[in-house]
Design a protein around this nucleic acid. Structure first.
Lengths: 216, 216
DNA sequence: TGCAGCTCGGGCAAATTTCCCAAGCCGGAT
DNA sequence: ATCCGGCTTGGGAAATTTGCCCGAGCTGCA
């Protein structure tokens, strides 16, 4: 375990964008005590890389193609409950944050955070503490006071499908990405509209956008 | 006026995520000949930074809060037609690519690209060439086979229908509001998708939003 | 005069949406 | 242990929409 513990913190980077990984790596390694020991570009590879390198901290983006990042979190935590996972994504929707912590994440930092905040979060998580960026704390605080957004009624699969749909993906693409039948995706599509009260696809996209699920 | 032209290429980074900017900066500067002379985290600041530093290349993400990145492109190009702008985003929809080039971008690279491809694109754009990543070339090629253009090729009626549709109106509501048959509205709907190249209603909404036709 | 493009809608096969239903799974309550 | 409820996954079938064909009336313009 953590063979570099005496000299620093080992990190596994999981993000589907190569240049983004490259950037994180450079930012983290410039700190001196943080070492990126492995990278993965999808949820499926994440656990293999985790097992092979046993990093102190996993830094991962939950918006990836294929199995959702939430699944990757559960996957890793189920087999290695000691794993420390720091979610690092552009999304700041309360439902996603709660889902991530519920899945076993130790921290949640948005890409809007200052690099120093991210580095700080990595160290906090490595120490076994819970960490989140200021904007996430704010979102969670707001959320706990409010009656809840329309997206709160959605399960995580529904959230994932809505995200991809609002991002412009076709039903077939979503089905292929998530390994579901087209029929299932269609049913989710209908279910999401029912739950949120959206009458048209356009309203669904607007809802997803206003809730921060997707950016336009 | 590119005062560093003899020694390298000056770059202005525009992205709303600080750590992502930090990462890009490090990746680009590790090349030796690329120098990030300024950063901006929103479209509004982008032109100010451009004017102040007159970079050889602007690398910007078009998915930002507030004014759209497309607006920033038009803004910069309108006042400095010599500007070279490389769009760097996670989106790979043909409509967005065409809108970006239509707005005056010189290049379009997705975040799925290898870092080397991004660096190469920056150099190409600096030389005044057009650049795009392989996946973008692919979606454009696909798109050109099925015809399709940008938003400004739409007629007045089509624009009006698109606006109402993207605003969340149902087909019946649009028909009633414009005193048209449902069938006619459906035909316009199809026609708009054909002309813009949008494959999905969601893509249509995104297009309308990025072009300022509707606000979300 | 003629062509081109917008506007408006019909037609019809193919696809999707809209619901309803069921089965497996899991967590929590009894 | 058992039941209940919710999530996930899909089948089925009717209703609706889509995709793409078409024609007709209108304009502007060359």
């Amino acid at each position: 375990m953590s063979e570099v513990a005496a000299t620093g913190i080992s990190v596994l980077l999981v993000d589907d964008h190569p240049i983004v990984r490259q950037g994180y790596r450079r930012v983290l390694e410039s700190q001196g005590d943080l070492h990126v020991v492995a990278e993965a570009d999808n949820a499926a590879d994440a656990y293999g890389a985790f097992k092979a390198h046993d990093p102190d901290v996993v830094v991962l983006d939950i918006s990836m193609p294929g199995a959702s990042g939430l699944e990757a979190i559960r996957n890793i935590r189920a087999r290695s409950p000691r794993a420390r996972i720091l979610v690092f994504t552009m999304h700041n929707e309360a439902v996603l944050v709660k889902a991530a912590f519920g899945a076993g994440a130790s921290g949640f930092v948005t890409k809007s955070s200052e690099p120093s905040a991210v580095v700080h979060a990595v160290r906090s998580v490595a120490r076994g503490e819970r960490a989140m960026s200021d904007d996430i704390a704010h979102v969670l605080a707001e959320d706990s006071l409010s009656a809840g957004s329309a997206l709160d009624q959605l399960g995580e699969r529904e959230i994932e499908i809505l995200r991809q749909f609002a991002g412009g993906a076709t039903t077939e693409q979503i089905a292929a990405h998530l390994n579901l039948s087209v029929k299932t995706v269609q049913n989710y599509h209908y279910l999401i509209k029912s739950k949120t009260g959206a009458r048209t696809d356009a309203q669904l996209v607007r809802l997803a956008a206003t809730c921060g699920l997707t950016r336009i």
